[in-house]
Amino acid sequence: MPSEHQKRLKTLQAYLIEKNLDTMIISDPAAIAYYIGVKFDPMERLWLLLVPQEGPSQVIANELFVLDDLQVDDLSITWVKDTHTISQAFQSLVYPLDQEKHLQVGIDKNWRAGQFLPIAADYPNATFTLASDIVDQQRAIKTIEEQKAMRLASEINDRAMGRLIQEVLPLGLSELEAVDRLKTIYAQEGADSGFSFDPIIAYGGNGADPHHEPDHSKPLPGDAIVIDIGCQHQGYCSDMTRTVYYGEVSDLDRKLYNLAKQANQAGIEAVICGQPLSSVDQASRNVIAKQGYDENFTHRTGHFIGQETHEAGDVSASNHTPIQAGNIFSIEPGIYLSGQTAVRIEDLVIAHEDSVEVINHYSKDLTVIPLAKTE
């Protein structure tokens, strides 16, 4: 019985036939991992997956790499010496590209020019076409097994969020100290690969920078605390944002929080297969705009997620791609008042044929955490 990774390669080959591409050359390490089950950073060294219309696929790998956990049985491997040039590496392929025949070759958007250009020069009869969309579209529709993995990663994230809010933040620690505690919590809760992205824990005005890097700031009474965190487990990522308040909450913060919560819910309710992704963005944005804060919602409503925290595909006003069953993406409206305060509420959703499933379950009720006790 073919493995999940072999099924993915077969699906890709069917797409190549449909697009009249003889071969697809994949350089993105995350995409290669999607198809063969091995993920690592090759740095500047050659690490490619060649997928023909039919027959076995092959990997080009530097001989320094260790590929013990390959998950495709009939995959051929061309080992490249560390001293080989790019051209020499391709000349030694098990299934070399035909230099006599005119080939239609798809490549991905991540292939470094320093590798691609020497190879293109060796094959003047080939037409190289940017074909990342074939891979991206396949990865955007998560299988039942992938959906299970995403739920599991999100369950761990729910527990970690709860412990962070209930056990850590009431201590009055700095943002960096809280992040350090979070790393331990993820390990204790079973996340096998740590953070899926650099966590954001932002106090007060720091939260008005959507991508704030935690620093030595400590919370002050009345601060909004924006918490955007995620872990990686069994190769899949989680991502969730909650906003809580330290000791007390102002009338303004309460108003902004309720707006963001309504916008989050409106976006969730707009997830309907066949409708454009832009309709989800519009639904969330309209709630905030009606109260005059449209200019304070400064980013898209969401992004696709899976083996990477940010995968191809987004929830924005410019993306009119129809929602498909199996799509998993975030819905994370936010309101940012520069130098003052901020709020963001984020959930991950799975689109199903006739419903939408939210896979984050930590409470979105407005929460005020107690002030740190002083001696």
Score class of each variant (00 low, 15 high):
residue 257 Y to G: 00
residue 166 Q to R: 12
residue 133 D to S: 10
residue 360 N to D: 04
residue 43 M to C: 14
residue 321 T to K: 04
residue 214 P to T: 05
residue 327 N to I: 11
residue 250 S to H: 03
residue 117 L to P: 05
residue 359 I to K: 03
residue 29 P to W: 11
residue 187 A to Q: 10
residue 63 E to A: 12
residue 68 D to A: 12
residue 216 H to P: 02
residue 19 K to N: 10
residue 67 L to Q: 03
residue 347 D to S: 13
residue 184 T to V: 14
residue 175 E to Y: 05
residue 298 T to N: 07
residue 307 Q to P: 00
residue 309 T to M: 07
residue 192 D to L: 11
residue 120 A to N: 08
residue 245 Y to H: 02
residue 177 E to P: 02
residue 123 Y to C: 02
residue 21 L to V: 07
residue 118 P to S: 07
residue 132 S to C: 03
residue 101 K to V: 13
residue 214 P to Q: 02
residue 170 P to R: 01
residue 304 F to R: 00
residue 143 T to V: 08
residue 10 K to I: 15
residue 121 A to E: 12
residue 303 H to V: 10
residue 142 K to A: 06
residue 282 Q to H: 15
residue 364 K to T: 15
residue 83 T to W: 14
residue 263 A to L: 06
residue 370 P to K: 06
residue 358 V to L: 11
residue 218 K to S: 08
residue 53 Q to N: 10
residue 182 L to D: 01
residue 199 P to E: 06
residue 234 Q to Y: 13
residue 342 A to N: 00
residue 203 Y to S: 01
residue 195 F to K: 02
residue 246 Y to A: 02
residue 110 N to P: 06
residue 352 H to Q: 09
residue 235 G to H: 03
residue 16 L to W: 04
residue 319 N to C: 07
residue 31 A to P: 02
residue 374 T to P: 02
residue 6 Q to P: 02
residue 79 W to L: 04
residue 122 D to A: 12
residue 221 P to A: 15
residue 67 L to K: 01
residue 15 Y to E: 08
residue 162 G to F: 15
residue 236 Y to W: 08
